[in-house]
Structure formats: C-alpha cells, structure tokens
Amino acid sequence: MRRAFVLLLPVLLAGCVRDSATYYISGNEHTVTVRAEQPYFWDDSVDLSLLAARLPECQRLFRLAKAAPGLALTLHSDGDNAFTLKSDAGTWSFETERCTMLEPKPATGELIGTFRLEGKQMVFAPAAPSAAP
C-alpha cells in the first residue's frame, strides 16, 4: 500500500501550480516578482506572494492573498521606487528603497504591466507604450 502511494504521489501533485514572473526594473538587481503557488491539486485557489528586490540593499518576500487561478494583477509605478499591485483580491503598495509595504493608495501611477496566471504558468505582460502628445 505504501509503495502504491509513493508511486501515485507525482500524479497527485501534477495538478499543482508553482510558478513566478518577474518585471525587471534595471537589470537583475532591481526587480518585482509575483509568485503563485497551489499547494494541493484539490484547492481551487492559489497563494500569491511578492518578492521585491533592489540588490544588495533590499530583498523581501511579502505574502499577499489567496486568489482564484485566473486572477490578473496590474503593476503601477508611483515614482521613487514605489509601486502598487491591484487586483480583485486587493491592493498592495510597496517600495524597494527600504523594502517595506505602504498604505494602499486609491490612485495609482503609470501602468507598467500585468501579472497573470495562464494555466499553470505565471506571465508578465508589459503595458503598451503610451502615445506621445
């Protein structure tokens, strides 16, 4: 019985999601990464977390929320290394100068792009460039 369980374990875990997507602000040293994890295949939601990094001074993981798998998170730049993530699950403001969460802002800055879970893969789609005046 135990051997059968060990052999079936990869099949049971095959439905799980564990992926991330990254927005590169300035090379590999300054990034915003959103991770989605579904620890159990029978769970319909994913755990979202944010990794803010501005190396070597800042690197911190923030737990965000449980969300539906098709959720999209928009990333906005509020200037001075401050950013806002918005979705149906909530709004989170953070900065990469000191790696801290801020009070969520009702108004957001420039749209940078969207993090989205497509199937089992997390992707970042940059926003279309705004037209020059």
Rank of each mutant, 00 (worst) to 15 (best):
G79I: 11
T33C: 07
E29F: 06
T84F: 10
T74C: 05
Q38F: 03
A128Y: 09
P10N: 13
F62R: 08
F62A: 06
F124S: 02
L8G: 08
F5G: 04
A4F: 11
Y40R: 15
F115P: 00
F94A: 04
S87N: 01
A132P: 11
D44N: 09
P106M: 09
R63K: 08
S87C: 04
L55V: 05
D43G: 00
A89Q: 03
T100C: 10
A89L: 03
F41I: 02
Q38L: 04
T33D: 02
E118I: 06
E95A: 13
L85T: 03
S26Q: 13
G15Q: 06
A82N: 08
L51A: 09
P56W: 12
C58H: 12
L102N: 09
L85R: 00
F62M: 11
G113V: 05
L13H: 04
F83E: 07
R98F: 10
L9A: 15
G79W: 14
D44R: 14
D47T: 11
E110T: 15
F115M: 00
P10K: 05
S87T: 01
L117D: 06
K120I: 12
C99E: 04
V123D: 03
Y23R: 07
Y24T: 10
N81A: 12
V17P: 03
A67M: 05
A82M: 12
F83N: 02
F94I: 03
T33W: 13
Y23V: 03
A52E: 06
G15S: 05
V46W: 01
A107G: 12
L73M: 09
P129T: 13
I112G: 07
H76R: 01
E37W: 09
L50G: 01
C16D: 03
L9R: 14
F94K: 01
G113S: 05
D88F: 06
S87I: 02
S130I: 11
A72T: 11
V123F: 03
A67P: 05
L51H: 12
R54Q: 11
T74W: 05
A4P: 02
V17N: 03
R18S: 11
A72H: 02
L50W: 10
A131Q: 14
L73Y: 13
T108W: 10
R18F: 09
A67L: 07
E97G: 04
F115V: 02
A127W: 08
V6M: 08
L117K: 03
A125I: 12
P133G: 13
L13N: 06
E103S: 07
